[in-house]
Nucleic acid binder design. Sequence first.
DNA 1: TATCTTTATTGTATTATTTACACAAAGCTA
DNA 2: TAGCTTTGTGTAAATAATACAATAAAGATA
Lengths: 227, 227
Amino acid sequence: MQDIKVAVDAVVFGYQQNTLYVLLIQQKFAGQKAYWALPGGLVKDDESLMDAVTRELKEETNVEVNYMEQLYTFGDDLHRDSRDRVISVAYFALIDSSKTNIKADTDADKVQWLPIKEVPQLAFDHNLILQTAIERLKSKLTYQPVGFDLLPKEFLFSDLENLYCTILEKEIDRRNFRKKILSFDIVEETDRFAEKKTGRPARLFRFNSKKYKTLEKEGFLFEIKFA
Amino acid sequence: MQDIKVAVDAVVFGYQQNTLYVLLIQQKFAGQKAYWALPGGLVKDDESLMDAVTRELKEETNVEVNYMEQLYTFGDDLHRDSRDRVISVAYFALIDSSKTNIKADTDADKVQWLPIKEVPQLAFDHNLILQTAIERLKSKLTYQPVGFDLLPKEFLFSDLENLYCTILEKEIDRRNFRKKILSFDIVEETDRFAEKKTGRPARLFRFNSKKYKTLEKEGFLFEIKFA
DNA sequence: TATCTTTATTGTATTATTTACACAAAGCTA
DNA sequence: TAGCTTTGTGTAAATAATACAATAAAGATA
């Protein structure tokens, strides 16, 4: 008789002002050291993996994401959870964090966005899961238009550019970047402008995901590379 | 108390003479219709996922692979196995099938290589798993040098070219393909030639995986694209 | 109101990469 | 030795990537 438990965990990324954030929770158990951890939990017998992670996210953080995909299943370390044999199917998710109301702290739980550069030691093997997710994000940014899922519906070109610079940790030539993105014909300008304090007003742009899906079916490949 | 079983399944690809094969098994159970299936089985409480799939492969098919990576975890269809709730962590593997002695058929089991174009309806959701693996193979071929794991240590350039044509289902310009591969400097010629019946003798080549790993660390990217 | 500061926007020349394309070389056979 | 078969090779044209700097728009300031 097999005795292995199945959990799901979610790495939810948010982006704001040149900083990439990850969503973490802290559950308080009497007498135990409280580690920050990825949201997640055990899968119920009658729910799909995807439903399980969606439910846990909602329960623990009140967050509903823009984009989610399976990341990797962690089950090679037999003692990744010191109590039982638990394998975790980890998910990778993106959200426009500016529009999200994360759950307020309760007596039992805390929830927060933490810059990925400031993530401390997490529970279980969650640092490894996070690291895997960061690599996935970096590589996905270059071959799928997932960056838009981290931004508001209408955004500035400079925001998009900074998002790429920040996450990929590279310098980008602004002219070439803009030329490249616009050549894909999946980002369109709106007639609105950002409210800013200083400098020339910046136009707001919008990602046309319908158009992207159409082009994708026709064989179009999104791809961003840098020198 | 959770009641979900954890299985592993392996999609093992082999290649020979312009044909991509997958390794399948058939287990005979009294009174049941016998479907072909991917090799795999339940994970033991004290073994890693990777160990489990390696063990099952050895036991069921006697095969040891050149390359293996986790593919995807199938657990969204609650009835993918009609008996119990089972999630399956699927693996993707490559092998030089010419050098492999697969297990001989027994009273209980059959094992065979089947061309992917001739795969019938399989057990459980194994057709879906296979399809996912084929897509992974196609995409990996273009950005990692995994094709070599399907070929003998020493191979003809025309074999490599045909492998790409066959799997990607595309035409390739021989000169440009050769130029591209050689430009990576990870394939070296040997001083040996193939024994052939007809035509100009063809030189044998070898993939230098150490060199590839070195270059990879320095930031080199393998990439093959076609018009 | 002229000037300064700040950020947004745009184009071109150079270089590198990708593509298209055809004929000679080597061995075998008749 | 003529013909068949498969291997092996180079160049020109087209396309894509890169490097690079001046102008536009608005508000702040003198």
